[in-house]
Amino acid sequence: MKTARTLGRAVAAATLGISLSAGVMAGEVNIGFTGPLSGGAALYGENTLSGLRMAAEEINAAGGFDLNGEKTTINLVSLDDRYSPAQAATNAKRLKQESNVPAIFIPHSGGVFALQDFNEKDDFLIMAYTSVPTVTEKGNSLTVRIPPTFDGYVHAFTDYALENLGTTLGMAGATHEYAKIWGSMIEKEWTSKGGKVVANNPMDYNKSADFFTGVSRIIAEEPDVMFVGGASEPTGLVVQQARQMGFQGGFIVMDQAKIDEVANVAGGLDMVEGAVGVVPLSVYDTDAAKSFLKRYEEKYGKTPGSEAAYNYLALHGLVAAMDATESTDPKVIRAALGDALKAMDASKNPYEVTDVTEKGGFVTDTTLAVVKDGKIVQEAIK
């Protein structure tokens, strides 16, 4: 649907002289990605990229999109940043200079903040897969936050854990920037509601596969609940080692990790009994989610996480905005993105995102899931 085409053409004419926009080469538009494709968070980065690849392949198989009267396809250009903000910034400069991308997808907050230092000047849209609230509170006009902010999770997870799991908390989160912010907020929320933090020992989830020393320090203080979280794979190892050392309490799982993926690594859902986290896509009961799950599983042979689904729908939305406006100017795309999401086919929108806030955040609901009797169950947020 060309709901924003007239406005988009007018804006494009004013800003670009009706010339080809950034990232356009002979019927192809380059879209950038920088994320961890090696190291401890490699699985997380690959899962994110898989959603983008799936969307790009669907878009191209359908004939691409309209741009200046020509059918245009998508070319994904992906670079490994090993979860390093400095490397992410270097990659973004390279993606802009060598591939002339109008948008760069990035799945970690440290990298997003690094790119926000120059993206408006260099004229590219940051498609940020991070739930840190400040990425859209800073007023960067060319940043789009894809998942919901995690402050809602902090409140909901804390309330559930204090009511159902116990009052003492051991902090065993990761050391990267996103986890530090999450850990700081959960600690503040926990103590403000009458809970007690008995241990705080963050660990480098990206470089280690043996968390024995760090986990044992937490368990020695006998907490009722452990806060864990980085990418799903190392988080699963932390949970596994905690259980092997005799921890029988519950877990608050940071939203970057997904309970079903953590369970797969840890050794099954019984290993994460009493865990509270975000609702995995596999638990969603909507037609759009089921359709995406089926197609993803047929393509990749595994169940997708939210990072795949959110980035899949975000690329479809980005291309729908370019199609509607027949422009690749980042400012034009950003202005048209909300209407494009509303008009997008439901099968391309597994999380049913319906709008973009004025500050650049996708509008979605906060969710909460717990593991009860070996099953992942969605709970209402009070």
Rank of each mutant, 00 (worst) to 15 (best):
Q256N: 10
D355L: 02
V278K: 09
A231P: 01
G45M: 08
L142K: 15
I376H: 12
W190P: 00
A263W: 06
F211T: 03
F211P: 00
K96F: 08
G317Q: 00
L95A: 11
A321E: 02
E58Y: 08
T34A: 10
Q97L: 09
W182S: 00
S327T: 12
E352T: 07
A275S: 07
K93A: 10
M54H: 08
A103T: 12
V276M: 04
V279S: 12
I106M: 11
T175C: 03
V265M: 09
G8C: 09
P234W: 00
S109V: 09
V198C: 14
P133T: 14
A12M: 04
F124Y: 15
G110A: 01
F157T: 14
L125N: 02
H176P: 01
A41K: 00
S38A: 12
T15F: 11
V276L: 02
Y83H: 11
K290R: 15
M344K: 05
P350E: 07
S21P: 06
E137D: 14
T6D: 13
S216Q: 12
E177T: 08
T286S: 15
T366M: 04
S208N: 09
P147A: 15
I104F: 03
A92G: 15
P147F: 14
G305T: 06
M185F: 10
E46I: 03
D123I: 05
T235Q: 08
T158F: 12
A199S: 15
G274M: 02
A346N: 07
Y284T: 11
L37R: 07
G305W: 01
D373T: 07
I219A: 07
G183R: 13
A231S: 15
N206F: 08
G69A: 13
N68L: 08
K2T: 11
E120T: 09
M322I: 15
V278C: 04
F251R: 02
D270Q: 11
G374Q: 09
